[in-house]
Design a protein around this nucleic acid. Structure first.
Length: 289
DNA sequence: AGTTGCACCTGGCTGC
DNA sequence: TGCAGCCAGGTGCAAC
């Protein structure tokens, strides 16, 4: 499910059940997901208390009481479910695909948190707090789009001289970290910018250079904030950790809307689907320039 | 150095 | 109803 808003929604959904709780037992039901689990993974987690559940880009970071950080990435199809005894009540696990339940966390409060991932593009790692910033997973990550750094100037600097299409530049996690296919398409539509325009042209100083970059930075933040507020997007019936469906998918203006009329007032264009670096791009060629 | 294309997986949907 | 083909929210790596 996961771009930044979905991961953030998972974080807030899991936090009340995990933070401050000790891991009594961890079941790991296969040797690997996308990558092998670390050696002695379950043992190293057992009896640790989760001090905080954070997020960087699309990574969930469970900070443990021994200075290790459990790093979790959901890939394309990873999700968490909450079950077990919660607030004195036993909750039945209505899992649809128990075959793909790969990791089960048993917490001191009797909550049972299950990680399910049919495609297994997700992964988990244990990294010490000290080595995390320089770890290969993190050292190359770009700006956190909901942090304080992303504004027109920063974006202009990042994209200056880049020949790559805007679409590709926005998906590049080493520039901005956390956007994926959906929110890039939606942001570009909202900003009225073509996904095919080369990233460098945002900056070229003919007329109002600052404005394009500034506008794009602003709409990215808007779109992400709105999506977080909506609990993310639920595609293919993907659920949030607490079983609720996010509803930002109802706000999509272009994603998966090929052939539909452009929703912008004063635009009579039609949403098109093209393929850029192997992935679908949805946009309106009339109002996105 | 910057891009592109493929690979990693499973499942759901479309169309014959 | 069956089955082939295509598509999917991500990313790392080999190859141009």
């Amino acid at each position: 499910m996961p771009e930044l808003p979905e991961v953030e929604t998972v974080r807030t959904g899991l936090s009340p059940y995990m933070v401050g709780q000790r891991l009594m037992r961890v079941e790991v039901r296969r040797a690997d997901l996308r990558f092998p689990f670390p050696d002695n993974f379950a043992q190293r987690l057992s009896q640790r208390t989760i001090m905080n559940l954070g997020r960087r880009a699309k990574y969930l970071l469970a900070e443990l009481d021994n200075d290790d950080i459990l790093v979790m990435h959901l890939g394309m199809s990873g999700s968490f479910r909450i079950g077990g005894k919660i607030a004195g009540q036993f909750h039945h696990d209505r899992s649809r695909l128990p075959a793909h339940d790969h990791v089960v966390f048993h917490l001191e409060n009797e909550a049972i948190i299950t990680y399910n991932d049919p495609r297994r593009f997700g992964f988990m790692q244990l990294i010490s707090r000290q080595e995390l910033p320089d770890h290969k997973l993190f050292r190359g990550l770009g700006l956190e789009p909901l942090g304080n750094e992303l504004d027109g100037q920063a974006l202009a600097r990042l994209f200056e001289g880049k020949a790559a299409p805007l679409k590709a530049a926005l998906l590049d996690q080493s520039l901005i970290a956390g956007l994926g296919n959906i929110y890039v398409c939606e942001s570009l539509h909202r900003a009225g910018l073509s996904p095919r325009r080369s990233a460098g042209t945002l900056v070229r100083a003919n007329g109002a250079p600052k404005d394009r970059a500034g506008l794009l930075a602003e709409v990215i933040r808007q779109v992400l904030q709105e999506a977080v507020k909506a609990g993310g997007s639920s595609l293919r019936d993907h659920r949030q950790a607490d079983g609720e469906l996010g509803y930002f998918q109802h706000s999509f203006k272009v994603y998966d809307r090929e052939g539909e009329p452009c929703s912008k007032r004063s635009c009579d264009g039609v949403i098109q689907r093209i393929v850029q670096s192997g992935r679908s791009t949805f946009f309106c060629s009339k109002c996105q320039r």
